[in-house]
């Protein structure tokens, strides 16, 4: 089941959260290997605890939310934000990253709605 939900497209969406994970990993690596201040349990334990707890909880939340979002994408039609029960709204391709081929159609510029009102 999990392999089905986390297909290539979903993984691509999740890359955004891999970056901070990567940065944390780099820092952890530096602190482990360069070890500029030596090891002392009272200070080093909280130091690693803070970074690892962030990595783990970010990983868990990304997994859960990815599963919820990608799972719902497969179960039901996906609409653009705020259009789910809008009359006449068209479903979108969830992996098009917001691009809609029709939107580039020519629109001639019209006066501002604000200015019309006043």
């Amino acid at each position: 089941m999990a392999t089905k939900i986390f297909d290539k497209d979903t993984i691509l969406d999740l890359t955004v959260n891999f970056v901070p994970l990567g940065i944390l990993a780099v820092f952890i690596g530096i602190f482990v290997f360069a070890d500029p201040w030596g090891f002392d349990l009272r200070a080093s334990l909280p130091m690693y605890l803070i970074m690892f707890s962030m990595v783990i909880s970010l990983g868990i939340l990304t997994y859960i939310s990815g599963k919820a979002i990608a799972g719902d994408e497969k179960k039901a039609e996906v609409y653009s934000q705020g259009q789910a029960f809008l009359d006449g709204a068209e479903p979108i391709d969830p992996h098009g990253h917001g691009e809609n081929s029709e939107e580039t159609d020519e629109h001639e510029s019209k006066t501002d709605p604000e200015n019309e009102e006043h």
Binding site: I69, A76, E77, Q81
Partner: peptide, 9 residues
């Protein structure tokens, strides 16, 4: 109709 996939931002 509002699934997690189209919950607005």
């Amino acid at each position: 109709n509002v699934t997690w996939a189209n919950l607005d931002i």
